[in-house]
Design a protein around this nucleic acid. Structure first.
Lengths: 200, 200, 200, 200
DNA sequence: GGCTAATCGAGACGGTACGTCACGTCTTACT
DNA sequence: AGTAAGACGTGACGTACCGTCTCGATTAGCC
């Protein structure tokens, strides 16, 4: 799991000590760990810095809020969890995707981070803007829809955005609105989704 | 708008000054106002007390967190916003309901409160528990589903919980995941929902 | 120890429930107990009322401050502790009195109450005024001085107030300024006092 | 009046912003001012911080209680007020000292601070311990006694601690027990003290 | 024996200080 | 110049007690 390896800032323009890669990675790992150990609400900038063995100022220099750190630490990497291998039939393809979504939202650490940020975004416009830069679920669902269209299992004129919402929405609703435990069956949702194509 | 009129606690068993209805209503109104004016995140227990012209201890005596106050202030009353008059045909009935949901989630003050609480619930189990006591969207969608079954427009063996998720989920997903502006069409969602009845 | 038996207020002018003697005594005992158990600083009006099994308003109705209650509870009765039986010789008389003072200031519960109030009086004029109504040590020392004058062991023109201060002051200073443990010898103080009679 | 110039803490071992001398001095001056303006009882940690233009946490970081601040602010410096220049004769020396004591206890701001702390010490062991670190009156009286012994005006075997109490006690008693106004004459007290030496 | 009125215990009321915590900024010495 | 450390001013946290108020219940003297 080779994470946090890409440099974010280039070589500094002129002079000065370069940004410490060690510090950057330590902060991202600290956020990951703390999310699991104490949860998003209990995380503090101070705690993150201490856990990372890093000065407080260093954290503020590169990130504004814990949401930003968490976003960089978890959410981007999370895209891979939402990209299962394409399957031979559309039914299997869609089912596999919905299973991935379900696993992501209920079981994965990255999913927990995503839900935490999503929650914060409901009342913090800054976080909302942050999340808006990456339509995590939408971007992962779109290829599935497009493969189905390509195979002729959905009409060519399908409104992709609406189809995405119809595909992901039911699962998303159940998890986010609090009924995490009584998950819906991805197989049955996939079948219903495909039974009759969305209207153009 | 005759809100906050019901007494919450009965007459005390014996002795003691009774709870001040004035204070209770003042707090609930203060929370309503502050949610609109400064938003959920900026609301503090201290600010609520001051705005209500009430002692801080008095707030803590009856509510533990701002989430609890907001819940009592907004969410219960919100149910009415989600109960449009039944329509003659199932298509119109479902469409009217989805329009109400859309209005509630994007335009209403009570809906803003609900989304704020929903957000908090993603990382605060106490708030999650609070919301679990009232399945706001589910409870409002169920009668719509049941009316459709009664009319024979959905199969009698329909899994109601799944149908609720399929009905509400797409809209919910779009709003909560941040695409509040590019709303989906309730009419088209209703049509698709009915063309593609959930499998039993 | 027949304490707290006198009525403080007379019969009311007309009608009304009379003051409860039970409540009055309960409060005074509660203050006595609490002073020993938790100390003056930790005593609160609320705690006194609860300990006495009495309403808070009832306490406030009859006393303004905890100092007032403590004064009524302990200090007045304390006078008896400072009035040892007169002795045959002046030396023995003065020694016996200083022993009583020493015991009162360092060992007695009433003495602890007195010191607590004396302390409060250093920065609370109300308490200072309260204590000024009864010159506890002065009133008890004056008879001793006067007996000594009567026996001819002090000059007839002795300034009694100054003599009182010279008699009591050394012990008082040691105790109040914090050297409670290394008490002075009443016998030696008495001897010095009499060898060095105050100048008129 | 070059007060509050000594550093209390040394240079930190490594790193970290050093303690702000500005904040330290501001707090000590604020306590001095507030003692005079509103009195000890009305002083609060919050008020001190505000008056000093300093964060509340900063006050707590360096002092635990207002007593501790007041002690550092006033009492140590007070020693100078209790050290009048030695006089040629013992009678004048003792008289000058008692006059200084009288002035300190009744007229000086540092004396007011000392009495306030002394009062608090009667019911707060922590303050008692604080005051025990500096025997303000004892330490100032001892040189006077020793000079008198040196001049042969007191016997060589004099019990110095007892002599201190006998010297300072009468004045102390009058002031602390509430009769601040009707002060005793330092001259007469000095004369009586020296008329016949204390017994060894 | 009913009326009047002040008391009683209880406990909620609006305030305010407590001591703690995290915020985001700053000022050091060190690398 | 960037870093770890940690003090800085700010302000919310939840608790405790303040002194006041509002209850229903009680307890006397008076008609």
């Amino acid at each position: 799991m080779p994470r946090y390896t890409g440099r974010v800032t280039g070589t500094p323009a002129h002079g000065g000590r370069p940004r410490s890669e060690r510090a950057r990675v330590a902060v991202l790992h600290a956020v990951d760990d703390l999310l699991v150990e104490i949860g998003y609400a209990a995380m503090t900038m101070k705690g993150i810095a201490q856990r990372a063995g890093v000065g407080r100022q260093t954290v503020y220099r590169w990130w504004s809020t814990k949401a930003e750190i968490l976003f960089e630490a978890s959410v981007i990497d999370a895209a891979s969890e939402l990209a299962p291998d394409p399957q031979d039939t559309t039914a299997e393809d869609v089912t596999a995707y919905l299973e991935a979504v379900s696993r992501f939202l209920t079981g994965s650490a990255a999913g927990a981070a995503y839900r935490a940020l999503l929650g914060e975004a409901q009342h913090d416009p800054a976080v909302a803007g942050l999340l808006a830069t990456t339509d995590l679920l939408g971007d992962s669902a779109r290829p599935v829809i497009e493969r189905a269209i390509g195979r002729g299992d959905l009409p060519a004129q399908t409104d992709v955005d609406q189809a995405v919402a119809q595909l992901v929405g039911p699962l998303f609703f159940r998890v986010v609105s609090g009924y995490r435990d009584q998950a819906l069956s991805p197989r049955r949702l996939a079948a219903d989704f495909l039974r009759r194509p969305p209207m153009p």
